[in-house]
Design a protein around this nucleic acid. Structure first.
Lengths: 254, 254
DNA sequence: CCCTCTCTAGGTACATCGTACGTAGAAGTG
DNA sequence: CACTTCTACGTACGATGTACCTAGAGAGGG
């Protein structure tokens, strides 16, 4: 328990017993008010901090996002950041939610009919576009549930789109997780494929050697019958079609 | 290029030009031989190193796995580890592959018929079991493609199981990614849910407040009609059923 | 009005991390 | 035997997250 302890070497504290209960600031950053309205005006805002962090992550990757770096980008002292963001995790939460704000949801969910499928396609494509813009995003989404206000907007939109189906709320939530997870995985795959392009030569050599070793017969067979690598977008669409079909299927049949 | 350079302040090197080409050790650790057969016998092995790292990760989480920590667990000096593992990333590769070795593949892929579905269920359940044993695994699997020898075994087995379907190799590879990604996501979800149990009170409060705010009508409706939380295993099975159905569907129809 | 309390900005300091580099010695090869 | 090539390990550096402290700004109560 690293809570603030009094000097603890002096005499007994006068009246109030040491820590009468630190108001127990919530762990969830969305439960902390951005401003409490006393003292001097803060020089920055959560929004500007998130924007600065996102700019760094877009340009140099998530590893380049350090408290020092973000603070410097804002022209602030390193430790001043901690007035806005109690831990680095919360900085990541802010980034995640700020990126989620980039979704553009149509006001009316298309038509009441089963354009549901089309709505899910559009949603997934938008998500992929956002994640291509911010290659660090999938890792964050996967790592933490992150229920910021914009994630709630996303959830609400998804529920609206899937309302025409007669699936119950729980099932639709599972469907959301399924679709969300799929797009993240795909974006993440694209990312590592792009980053590992330099070692691709090594990898190909390793794989062909493995295939020829005879230890992996089915792998070798698949290699032999493999066609040319597909265009990323069509590969995505094909897999997306499968996932959406799985989502819209009535319910467990067997 | 941090290769070994000669003192470089002396007179010109006699005959060989400074660095004639460092043999360019491969980045992929699986392409480096474990032993080259000269010098003293190494006191450790990749297997023992991976085992030590896994023990630490199982007990204290992936963050507790540091080079110093693993070396200490082996009774070795910190820097000695770098004789076996050129970078920490490669340590993670070793851990990943060692965990993948825990799969137990049946020698004969059941029957030639469409027990394919059953085979995929078994595979997914085994994967979930492994990931529950090693809560740090999903994060690793998601982060890097990691094509160690045991991952190849897994791939080969998957291809064997899905052989009865008349899907081509590329499609079955996509199916593998789909199933693999799904199980990882689910395991990761379970993990964060378990870790965040302490803040669950906060989270529930936040969500109900959001639902009541009127800004998320569909979310509120879903909340209202939500049943009791399902048993994790049945929830997994339900979602798995959808995913496997999506995988086994013939091919893009529309 | 001033006093006081609360907030902000910022600096210093520490533990811990990955790892570059160099030295000492052991085990094979000629 | 000498020589080469490996292993083991200590030291040291730059970077990280963040605990803690000092000043000072500005609103509220007397």
């Amino acid at each position: 328990m690293p809570s603030s302890k009094p000097p603890a070497g002096e005499s007994a504290p006068p009246a109030a017993p040491a820590t009468p209960e630190p108001p127990e600031a919530p762990e969830l950053i969305w439960l902390r008010p951005e401003r409490t309205g006393r003292g001097p005006k803060p020089a920055h805002s959560r929004a500007s901090i998130a924007a600065a962090a996102i700019a760094i992550a877009d340009a140099e990757g998530l590893d380049a996002v350090s408290m020092r770096r973000v603070a410097a980008a804002l022209g602030a002292g390193t430790m001043s950041l901690y007035n806005y963001v109690p831990k680095k995790e919360h900085l990541l939460d802010l980034m995640l939610d700020a990126a989620t704000a980039e979704y553009d949801f149509p006001a009316t969910p298309a038509t009441p009919a089963d354009d549901c499928r089309e709505g899910l396609y559009r949603l997934a494509h938008q998500q992929l576009a956002i994640m291509r813009r911010h290659p660090w995003l999938p890792a964050l989404v996967i790592a933490r549930p992150g229920i910021g206000p914009n994630a709630l907007r996303y959830t609400d939109h998804f529920l609206a789109v899937t309302a025409p189906t007669r699936l119950d709320g729980t099932t639709r939530m599972e469907a959301l997780a399924l679709l969300n997870g799929f797009v993240c995985q795909y974006a993440q795959y694209e990312r590592t494929a792009a980053a590992g392009a330099k070692w691709q030569g090594e990898l190909v050599g390793y794989l062909t050697r493995a295939a020829m070793s005879g230890d992996y017969p089915h792998l070798a067979a698949a290699f032999a019958t493999a066609g040319p690598p597909a265009d990323p977008d069509t590969a995505f669409d094909r897999a997306l079609h499968r996932v959406v079909t799985a989502i819209l299927a009535p319910a467990q049949s067997g």
